Simulated scan of single mutants.
Amino acid sequence: MSEHSGHTAHNARVWNYWLGGKDHYAVDQQVGDQVTSMYPSIGQVARADREFLGRAVRHLAGEAGIRQFLDIGTGLPTAENTHEVAQRIAPDARVVYVDNDPIVLAHARALLTSSPEGATSYIDADAHDPDAILRSAADILDFERPVAVMLLGILNFILDTEEATAIVRRLVDAVPSGSYLVLTHPTLELGGEGNTEAMAFWNANAKPPITARTGAEIAAFFDGLDLIPPGLVSCSRWRADATPGHESLQVAQFGGVARKP
């Protein structure tokens, strides 16, 4: 990777640092360490979000029988990516990843390889443009059959709530009955009240800027859908019995999975 892009911390690389990865620059580590000093549980949030992804995909590929996943705002590949979790259960699962960071793009193309029976594809597109995402994803996914639309830690980069809601609506409208919406989002609730200062520091020193939302605002993204138990909760507590030892951990990141009736 060239050094010229290493002057400003970037979300995908800082998140990679928090998860213990190696795909980041010194500036990402510096910002990551500063955020951690202001908000010590951020590393727990990053890990809890990743573990939620695993539990949600295992449920969808297993019990729910979903074979198509549209994972928007993928971030840098780490262990237990969506296609790895899904194809372990259902080798014929088809997964489309979406991101618009060239570093993520380069890593994803090298690392995100599919099982022979399934398919894994990567779209260079922005979450602000759902129509472009849907057009490109149609090359791999059959929108006549159920799709799990995954928006993990991405709507917090859509600063305008009306725009974020419209993006979710457009994506959900494009998939048939029996599809799912999987979502995580940071909040200043659930013990995250002290995060305000850390978010302000982030927005001054890293890209893209971020916003927190309330549980009520996040719940509204699921309007018209049926949240499956346990509903909208701290992502670390969503079906936490599947991650032993995590039953009592609460992080300031809501998570939920809902079915389109």
Rank of each mutant, 00 (worst) to 15 (best):
S121K: 00
F52I: 10
E193V: 00
D99C: 07
R67P: 00
S115W: 06
P261G: 05
Y25I: 05
R237V: 05
T243I: 14
P229V: 03
A242E: 15
A56K: 04
P146I: 04
V27H: 02
I103K: 07
D33G: 00
H83W: 06
P102H: 05
L70Y: 14
F254D: 08
F201G: 02
D126W: 03
N16D: 15
L188E: 08
V175Q: 11
E189P: 10
G153R: 09
G224D: 03
S248P: 05
R170D: 04
A220Y: 10
A108G: 15
T82E: 03
L105Y: 15
H59D: 15
G75F: 01
D124E: 14
H83K: 01
A200G: 08
A119F: 02
G194T: 02
R47W: 14
A26K: 14
E84H: 05
I72Q: 07
A216S: 15
D241M: 01
T196W: 00
Q250P: 00
R67H: 09
V31K: 04
G245C: 06
T214G: 10
P91G: 09
T187V: 00
T8K: 15
A148S: 11
S236V: 06
N203R: 08
P116V: 01
H185T: 06
Q253G: 00
V31W: 12
K260P: 09
V104T: 07
G75W: 09
A9W: 08
P102L: 04
S5I: 12
A61C: 11
Q68C: 01
N81V: 06
P261E: 07
V175R: 05
D223I: 00
G73C: 03
H4Q: 09
G231Y: 03
N195D: 06
G54E: 15
E189D: 14
F221C: 00
V31S: 04
V96Q: 04
P40T: 04
D101E: 08
W202T: 05
I103T: 15
Y180M: 02
A26M: 07
G20Y: 12
M150Q: 13
H107D: 08
Q30G: 01
V85L: 13
A127S: 12
I154F: 07
V45I: 12
A79C: 00
F222S: 10
E51P: 00
V35R: 05
G118H: 11
V251M: 10
R239A: 10
L249W: 01
A48D: 12
S136K: 15
T113A: 13
S115C: 03
Q87K: 02
I72Y: 03
L151T: 08
G43K: 09
T8H: 10
Q44N: 07
E217H: 03
A240H: 06
C235T: 09
D226G: 01
A166F: 02
I72T: 05
L53I: 11
Q250T: 15
D99W: 14
G231Q: 03
A12R: 07
I158T: 06
A240E: 08
A48C: 10
R55F: 10
H4F: 13
R170N: 08
T78P: 01
G6H: 14
I42C: 01
A198I: 02
I167H: 13
A242S: 12
P229Q: 08
F69L: 02
P209K: 12
V35Q: 10
G118A: 04
A125G: 09
G192E: 06
S177R: 15
S248G: 02
A64K: 11
T8L: 12
T196K: 13
Q29M: 13
P130F: 05
P208H: 07
G43C: 03
E162Q: 14
Q34P: 00
G43N: 07
